[in-house]
Each structure stands twice: as structure tokens, then as C-alpha cells.
Design a binder for these strands. Sequence first.
DNA 1: CTGAAAGCGCTTACAG
DNA 2: CTGAAAGCGCTTACAG
Lengths: 356, 356
Amino acid sequence: MPDPALKTVSGTYPSMAEVSIKEVARMAGVSIATVSRCVNNPEKVTEKTRLRVQKAILETGYSPNTLAQSFRRGRTNLVMVVLPSIGDPFFTDVMRGIRTAAKAKGYSVVIEETQFNTMTADEIGAMLVSKQTDGIILLASMSPFGTEILSAKSRRRLPIVIGCETISPELSEFPSVHIDNVAAAKEATNYLISQGHRRIAMICGQASSLLTKDREYGYRAAMNQSRLAIEEGWVVEGELSLDGAIRATRKLLNHQHRPTAIFCANDEMAIACLHAVKSAGLRIPDDISVIGFDDIRYAEVADPPLTTIGQPAEEIGERVMYRLCREIEDGLDGETAPEIVPHKLIVRQSVARPAG
Amino acid sequence: MPDPALKTVSGTYPSMAEVSIKEVARMAGVSIATVSRCVNNPEKVTEKTRLRVQKAILETGYSPNTLAQSFRRGRTNLVMVVLPSIGDPFFTDVMRGIRTAAKAKGYSVVIEETQFNTMTADEIGAMLVSKQTDGIILLASMSPFGTEILSAKSRRRLPIVIGCETISPELSEFPSVHIDNVAAAKEATNYLISQGHRRIAMICGQASSLLTKDREYGYRAAMNQSRLAIEEGWVVEGELSLDGAIRATRKLLNHQHRPTAIFCANDEMAIACLHAVKSAGLRIPDDISVIGFDDIRYAEVADPPLTTIGQPAEEIGERVMYRLCREIEDGLDGETAPEIVPHKLIVRQSVARPAG
DNA sequence: CTGAAAGCGCTTACAG
DNA sequence: CTGAAAGCGCTTACAG
């Protein structure tokens, strides 16, 4: 007897009572096959029968055992997303988009945070295939990683979609959703140049990570196009972390030709950079200009508010999830052209013309 | 034939080849029951048999179909964690702890981000029970929520453990792990008082959320003990968001008796508070002192670095997960005394003696 | 449109 | 110690 207080819009709590399809069939006086049809293919059943079964379902509070369904159907409705750091607010926003889409499509998502530097390619590959998921979203990947995934994919026919980052040639067979990182990084660099900066340094991610690789390319391309030299020691790794970026900033400040502007491959590092510069007794933007990438929510409340490149993080998340759904449901179609979403330069107050 | 390049430490990729237990049994010349025993209860099998089966497993690359196992065993090895905002770096750290423990115990975790204010209790309850999970970690709960969970729990015997926040009477039957929020908030408030502040305001969370309720109690208690008045309008809701906290700060700055110090119920809001105060042309800590709560990683790089209450976020996560495992595996033991972990006042530079 | 039956892959009493 | 068999709850050709 279902507790009336527990009624939901759709009837009663699913799975709450441990009643199986048999019980419903018995009560409705039909076979279990018919009950199944009423739930999954109502159009295959006469209205009269459907109503009777409906009533029995309501009365028993029946809801299909999803474990049995998953087993029977060979699908879990679970997708895995692999990312470098759930801590980065940018990925938080991407995840929000993924969740929204996942919920709409009836999927749950499990997150795998990967310290790629501490895992062997074997371990990563094993992880990817060991969980029973219907598909994988890769928000982080590294170069030697490609081949592993390829094998996993071809063997298990596991749908994979890549989000956010640049694609290396070996990964180009996978669908992807991201901004044009090269163009965006060029835009950021050119903005600094347009403000009169000539000595421009960059704090990039990790050498092993594709995530910010294209941003470095973009920076280098912009510098080249303007015939500006990139001195040895002006491109340093910030490890995508606050601490790493603080260390990187100190190196730049101690450089014999100190840059007047620093382009950080993401806002997380830019915020740490701001702090390190100020801690060294220099002012922003008067002494050093800083520009970031991502436009995380802290960018606006940074001191000074951070000039940066905005990405539509949530939209990327949604689109990447929907793209994965297509792979899962329609099968692996050959079409793997990347979906490019727009970025935007957001001018705040961390960049000014260089002194002198 | 397994690809040697795909060998992992433990043999070959699990689930990679679609071979079932039958195939292994055939190859080893035993029954499927014996194969199952070799995998799950090796001690019940002679060494000779075990070796033969082991060999067949290696050669086929067999790994049990977890879908079938879940179905058969009636367990998913999936736990759900419900939290208010995956965006908050504090919860990121808690999640890291949860994941570490989950991995160690063989569980996957799905996250449910709950805008409690936009969900009815019915919807929440339905959500909790609709997913097939072995247990639930509640990192956020609200008061009218309690009864719903109780019903869900009693009906499904669904293990639930509460993390981080204060426990209302109706939730006290659940195990929990958290700091002593009241004591910590008193400590923060008393620190401000010890620095000479008398007009101390508070930016709290949402009225509906238990998450920061005890921090408000602690603040009020400390003020009372020191016989300091809390003026009307000195306790404002910051909605646990940057924007909300900015609005809250503006209200406080415009108050006819402007406070000299502001206690923020978490660092996320404190960082926004810092920004709002500075934007209003006031200095921190010279004009206004600010103290936060949580010690998220941005606290250290805030301007000025934020004085706050540190919580062992990752430890809380680990312990809450292990606690849940005990509930799941050993059954619901009656023992529900909360596990209290230590907090710590972290003095940085956002608090000073009031001017004048 | 409906029902009887097979079967998904595994685990586990029950015999032997 | 090992095997034959039942059964978890569902879905889906296959007949009728």
C-alpha cells in the first residue's frame, strides 16, 4: 500500500517498493511481456489493457529494476568524463552543461579525475574500459594517450567525444567540441601587442598536456607575426595550478629581461600570477599586465579584475554530451568534424600600456 | 588473442574482449560455477584447478560482466553524493577525498547537484531513490528534507551518511562527519572581538540551507557572550554565491551603523565581499576586516590574503565515504554518533584592529 | 494485440 | 572440491 504522502507527480516513488514485473502482471491479469510493453512501447498495446496495467503499476508503485534493464539491454546509461582537475571552475561550468544534457537524455555521469603524469598509459587505458559506461567524454588527454584510446575504442566500440582542448592528429578521428584555441590565444597576445607591449611572456600548462598546447602555438604565432622575439625563459610551465603559477611568475619576474606582460594559459594560473606579482611589490597593470584565459567566475572579482578570453563553458559541456549521445544512440557515424564554438576577449583592468 | 601491447599489470584489459564465463569454462574444462569461484572465492578451489582457470582467463582476457554481477548481486557499487554546488572549491576538495576512498573500496560516484530552492521535497525524494545506488552521501540538506529521506531510507533500507554540515534533530539518526561548526564560528567571531571589533556583521548562506546554519548560531552566541549587540540588518544572506555576497556586502556598507568587520559563512562569499568592499573605495583590513570560512585554495591568493577557518575537507570526504561503506557492507548499525574533525583558525591579513 | 518461452551472464545453495 | 541447476528481472523475437 503506497503512502499517499509519498506521491510524486508521476505517481509513486520508483523502486521504492520491491515489487517486480510479475506482481504487476498478476494484479492486472496479463503476462509480464504485456507489462513490459506498456512501459516501453505503449503503442503496441490496446488502450484497455494499457489502462488496466497502468492501474496495477500505480497501485503497486512498480518501477522497473534498472539493474535488470541495464543487464538485459547491455547498456548502463552511464557516461564517464575524464578531466584533469575538477577543481578548476572552468571545468565546473563545463560539467554543469554536461549534467544538464545528461539529465535531459537520461544518463548519469561519473567523473574520473586523471593525474596523467602519475598514471601510465596502460593504467589510463585500463581505467577507460574497466568501468561499464556507454561512452566517454575526454576533457583532457595527452599525446601518447591517443593510441591507447584507439585500441580501446576499436575493440569495445566505445563511443568517445573530446571536449575543450586541441586535438592532436592521432585523436582527430574522434568528434570534438571546443573553441579555436589558436585563434583565441593569438587574439589575447595581439591585444597585449596593441596596447604597446613588446616583451610578452607566457605561463603555459604542462608540457604533457594537450589542454593548453594550442594556446602556446597561438601566442608564438602572434609574436612571430609581429616580429617580436620570445626570449629564452619567457615561456614557463605553470602546471595548471596556483602554486605552479606562482613559481612560474617568480621566474619571469627574475628574468634578466623582465617581460612587461604575461599571458596565462588559464585564469586559475592568472589569478595566482596576479598574487605573485603583487607580492613582489609590483603593481598590476602599471608595472606588469596580465591576461588570462577561460573567464572563470573569480576573474571578475580578482584584484584587479582580470582581462581574459571567455569560453562558453556550459555550452561546450552541453554540446559535447549531446554529441556523445548521438554516437551512442545512432552508432558511430563517420562524421567527426570538430564543432567550434565562439570565444570572446573580455577586457577588464589587468592590462594597461607599459610604463615608459 | 590478446594484443601484448595492451597488457596491464593485472593481465589484459578487463571487458575488452567480449568473452563470457562460458568460454573460460570451456577452455579450462570446468563448469562456469568453478570459474566464478576462482574469481570470487579462490580459497574454495584446489590450486590445480585454479591455475588452469587462471590460464584460461589470461588467454581469453576474460573479465566478469559487471552489469550481470550488479544485477545478480543486487548491488551497483555506485554511490550518489548530493551537494549544493560543485563549483565551490571546498566541495571540490571534499569530493577528492570521497573519490580517493571510493576508488579504494571499488565504488564509483555520481554527483547530484541540487538547487534545493527550485526542487520540491517530492522531487528530491524521488531523485534520491530513483537512481540505483548502494548509498547516498548528503553534503547538503535542508530542513523539510528530513522526513522525506527517512521514508526513503526505511523503505529501501538505503544507507545515508551526512557530511560537512550541521545536523537538524530530524536528521540525527544518520551518521555524519563534520567539524564543530558552532565552535568554529564562535572562534572566528571571538577573534574579531579580540582584535577590538564591536560592530560585527555576518553574511550567511541561505535561510533554507542547513549548511551554514550552525555558523550563524556560533556567531550569535559569541556576540551574546561578549554582550555585543547585533543590529537589525547586520545578518544578511549571501546565497553562497559571488553575486549574492556582493549584494549582501553592499547592504552592509550602506547600513546606517556600518560594521567594522564582516564574518562570511564561507570563503567563496568572503572573496566576493573583499571585492565589493574594495570596489566601494574602502580598504581591507584598514577600513573593514573580513574573515571567511573553509580555507579554499583561493583564500591564500586573495587580496589581501584571507583570514579564515580551515576545515580538513579532503579528510571529511574520505571519512564520510568510509563511513558509508560500513553502512553498506555491515548493514545499518545503530551507531550514529557524529564524527567530529578538527578545524583551525588561519590568520592571514584580512583582519586588523578597527580604525579609531 | 497478447502470451509462452528463451536468454542476457552471473552467483549460490544443493547434491554428490 | 566440483557440477548441474535454479533464478535474479527484464526484453524480445516468435507464434498464435
